[in-house]
């Protein structure tokens, strides 16, 4: 898997913003197949920053109802919270 295939998009929520602001931790949605090493490499190459730590988690698939009966299923996805080295930062929203 190529480094550029690993990171899908930044996760932009209040929570992720707070994490970025206070803890220097940036949150991304990553390919479900990617592991921590790949994510570290991808973030380091893509944003030219040093990564201290990567935590990953699988976000559960969720079902929702569309209309009366139809059940819609969201795919499960992998979330990675990357802690950057001091002084590094990523401008979110550079390329979604």
């Amino acid at each position: 898997m190529h480094v550029y295939e690993v990171i899908k998009r930044p996760v932009i929520t209040e929570k992720s913003y707070d994490a970025a602001d206070f803890n220097n931790q940036y949150t991304f949605e990553v390919d479900t197949r990617a592991n921590k090493h790949q994510i570290r490499d991808a973030v380091e190459t893509a944003f030219r920053v040093s990564v201290l730590n990567v935590r990953v988690m699988m976000m559960p698939a969720k079902t929702g109802m569309r209309g009366r009966r139809k059940v819609v299923r969201k795919s499960p996805w992998k979330k990675a919270v990357v802690t950057l080295g001091e002084g590094d930062s990523i401008q979110f929203f550079e390329g979604v």
Binding site: I12, T13, E14, S16, F93
Partner: peptide, 16 residues
Amino acid sequence: IPGFRKGRAPFHILLQ
């Protein structure tokens, strides 16, 4: 704005 409660989105997110 998805991911934010109303009125909580930072300025530049809203701008975007």
